[in-house]
Design a protein around this nucleic acid. Structure first.
Length: 477
DNA sequence: AAAAAAC
């Protein structure tokens, strides 16, 4: 079996690898490192979790260990689709370059330019960046890409999904064509194929068998969920989620809960917190310091439940998670594979439970045909409640709160939008919660009096018809 | 129907 020691890496890099506790390269590393060390282009087809990052950082450090960077002329460039991924790559450089003198800068959005500018001015060997911020620096004339010796494109298929390909092409065109290019993608979509044909020359192609289906040690289940009433769908769905978490009990060491929308990420996280769960949200509308803080807390075990958008579905290096819950069935079946791949890593067992609303059954079919198996149906852990009186105070309250959320959303205060949404969502929750508890009588117009539907409360029978509709329906109609 | 990424 090949050892790192057989790979011609810089002895100082080997020492750091050893200290990190590694001895043998993964298949992608074994395939990519020798070619990269020879200065050849590499086309790596592999997913996260295969050791992809080290397959380019190790040879890069070895090659960059000689020579020094000049001001504003970085010697190498790594492009990543998300800020978190870029930060992870930077950490990887720190780990393996700790015995080598190497300077680096992390150029990502959401943080101030000042420190980034200063680092570039000093001169860096490695620039790790998301495309938007990199081009921003370039356009300010702060950066020259003509000194790039090695360029890495990480997670190219995700860049494609996110519409970054024009940016990537532009960045390629700003670097010398003599550069070495290391290009990584999980799939080879036609557009990716085109890019590699244009910008790579005689690459060493290293392909790691794709996890076409999901790993065997992940137990998968789905709960088919139907709301008792349209306007209570969101509330009841959150309730199903809590019941599922409770049902798993102690076996939930840590979990990621995925939602399809950022707003739901906020609402679900807020709601879980309210009910005493240790949960925090992460998505692209939260500011960067918050994102970093939350993710760090989750990594070191201080936070138990991460409620996430698909920002966390791919590429995020979250240590093995015991559970993944899909609050929504993902809109793209492939994302299902990425999401549940957050659990069952490194041979450990994991469990993935998906909540599927009636309207998402088509999406579930798509998922099942992709993973090529039928996902075990789980009984809805929330028992059907005895029929409730048709109208309660909460029923008239809740839509009012929603209405407020909506009008606030249109206010021109973009910087506070997210915060207000959460706040409004929390208000919605409050009324929701009340809804499930027995109502206290209120000036003789208590619950019992209303059972016969005789007493007029709030708007009484004169409910504008749109109020009874869900948000989605209002928007659609 | 969405998320991500620049200010």
């Amino acid at each position: 079996m090949t050892k790192f020691a057989d790979l011609n890496l810089n002895p100082k890099v080997l020492k750091a690898i050893e200290e990190a506790g590694y001895e043998s390269p993964t298949p992608i590393q074994e395939g990519a490192i020798p070619a990269a060390l020879e200065g050849r282009d590499v086309l790596g087809i592999a997913q996260t979790g295969t050791g992809k990052t080290a397959s380019f950082t190790l040879p890069m450090i070895t090659r960059l260990a000689r020579g020094r960077a000049r001001a504003r002329m970085p010697r190498s460039l790594v492009l990543c689709p998300t800020r978190e991924l870029a930060a992870q790559v930077a950490e990887n450089f720190d780990t393996y370059a700790k015995h080598v003198k190497l300077t680096k800068a992390l150029l990502i959005g959401g943080v101030s330019f000042k420190e980034q500018d200063a680092a570039i001015d000093r001169g860096v060997d490695v620039l790790i960046a998301t495309p938007g911020r990199l081009l921003d620096h370039f356009e300010r004339g702060k950066l020259l890409l003509t000194g790039i010796e090695i360029m890495v494109v990480d997670e190219a298929d995700r860049m494609l999904d996110m519409g970054f390909i024009p940016d990537i092409e532009r960045i390629f065109s700003l670097t010398p064509f003599t550069r070495q290019t290391l290009f990584f993608s999980a799939t080879m979509a036609p557009e990716i194929e085109r890019i590699t044909n244009t910008f790579l020359s005689a690459p060493e192609r290293v392909e790691i068998a794709r996890q076409a289906t999901t790993s065997e040690n992940i137990e998968q289940a789905v709960v088919l969920f139907k709301a008792s009433r349209k306007d209570r769908e969101a509330t009841e769905k959150r309730r199903v989620l809590r019941a599922l978490i409770d049902q798993e009990g102690e076996s939930v060491q840590n979990a990621v809960i995925f939602c399809n929308r950022k707003m739901d990420v906020d609402i679900v996280a807020k709601s879980l917190k309210k009910y005493g769960y240790d949960a925090a949200p992460i998505h692209g509308d939260l500011d960067q310091s918050q994102r970093t803080k939350t993710l760090d807390g989750f990594r070191d075990g201080a936070l138990k439940i991460l409620v996430a958008s698909d920002v966390a579905a791919r590429g995020l290096d979250v240590p093995s998670v015991s559970h993944v819950f899909n609050f929504d069935v993902p809109g793209h079946a492939e994302d299902y594979v990425h999401r549940i791949g957050r659990t069952g890593r490194a041979g450990r067992d994991g469990k993935a439970i998906t909540i599927c609303s009636t309207r998402d059954e088509k999406l579930l079919e798509a998922v099942e045909s992709l993973v090529q198996k039928e996902i075990t149906r789980l009984e809805n852990p929330v028992k059907v409640e005895p029929r409730k009186p048709r109208k309660t105070a909460a029923d008239t309250d809740a839509p009012k709160e929603e209405k407020r959320t909506r009008s606030r959303k249109t206010a021109d205060k973009p910087e506070k939008k997210t915060e207000e949404k959460v706040e409004a969502a929390a208000n919605t929750n409050t009324s929701t919660q009340t809804e499930q508890k027995p109502q206290r009588g209120r000036g003789g117009k208590g619950r019992n009096d209303r059972r016969d539907d005789k007493v007029v409360v709030g708007m009484g029978d004169h409910l504008p018809s749109f109020i009874a509709l869900s948000f989605a329906e209002r928007r659609a109609g």
